[in-house]
């Protein structure tokens, strides 16, 4: 009896947290079907914002910038972070702690300080443009890749690799066939985490972007006083649903494959 009551409270609490995390998202989704520009009045159901989503060059530009930025920043972060996570694992204590400090700086620094320091740097030595935002995003994505990969690199089982070498495989071939498969899930976690952080960033983009470069976030921030275009609710809903479906599909697929529970299919 008492157990049941506690179980009920537990479920109720999870429901409350769910409401807290997802109610703003529900609001935006409902608004994307609202046949009225007003943010408070329900004017009936419509799909017109979904039809008009891509007609404004303003919005498509920002969308392309946001996606390109997220993709290339995550790619660069993996290219730099992957060898580094091997490197750091090979270091002795002191070198390792120096490197971990370096990894943690962008995570622990306030966004605004990271953004401004890079803005001042770019103004002095380069110029503010798309590349400056790309560099800035890569800076804060690398730590996520390294932190996702390091535990996997440390847990790598090297015996199959050594057996492959004994059987005459070349080092790169043995690495590719015996070690890489143990790391794919870590690379995907790191890449996905980077994508998420890049898509979700506002402050660092805000400071490091050049004139005329806008991500969805900075564009929306600039238009708050003019009023938000409902097309943006539709676009954000589409992005959200696409990621939700992708994650569920990946999750179901890995579960079917019967991979190890938990760790292996982190996302």
């Amino acid at each position: 009896m008492r157990d049941r009551a506690v179980n009920f409270i537990t479920r109720f609490y999870l429901l409350l947290i769910f409401l807290f995390l997802y109610s703003p998202i529900a609001v935006l989704m409902v608004l994307s079907f609202n046949d009225s520009r007003s943010r408070v009045v329900w004017g009936g159901f419509t799909l017109k914002w979904y039809e008009r989503m891509f007609t404004s060059p303003h919005i498509t530009d920002a969308l392309v910038t946001t996606l390109a930025l997220a993709f290339f920043a995550s790619l660069l972060a993996v290219l730099i972070g992957f060898p580094a996570s091997f490197g750091i694992c090979m270091l002795r204590r002191s070198g390792r702690s120096v490197m971990m400090t370096l990894v943690n700086i962008p995570l622990l620094d306030a966004d605004i300080v990271t953004g401004i320091s890079m803005m001042l740097f770019f103004m002095r030595f380069m110029e503010l443009s798309f590349s400056s935002v790309l560099i800035a995003h890569t800076v804060f994505c690398i730590p996520y890749v390294i932190l996702a990969l390091m535990p996997r690199v440390e847990a790598v089982d090297w015996t199959p690799y050594e057996s492959a070498l004994d059987l005459g495989a070349t080092q790169p071939y043995a690495f590719l066939r015996m070690v890489m498969p143990q790391l794919y899930s870590g690379i995907i976690s790191g890449f996905f985490m980077s994508l998420t952080m890049s898509m979700d960033d506002f402050a660092i983009t805000y400071f490091t972007k050049g004139a005329g470069v806008n991500t969805l976030s900075t564009m929306i921030y600039g238009e708050i006083r003019k009023g938000i275009k409902p097309e943006l609710y539709a676009l954000s809903t589409v992005i959200f649903m696409a990621v939700l479906i992708l994650l569920l599909a990946v999750n179901v697929a890995t579960r079917k494959k019967g991979g190890e529970t938990g760790e292996g299919r982190a996302y």
Partner: peptide, 8 residues
């Protein structure tokens, strides 16, 4: 939730 635009 981070995939719904931050400002929105």
């Amino acid at each position: 939730p981070m995939w719904m635009n931050f400002i929105l």
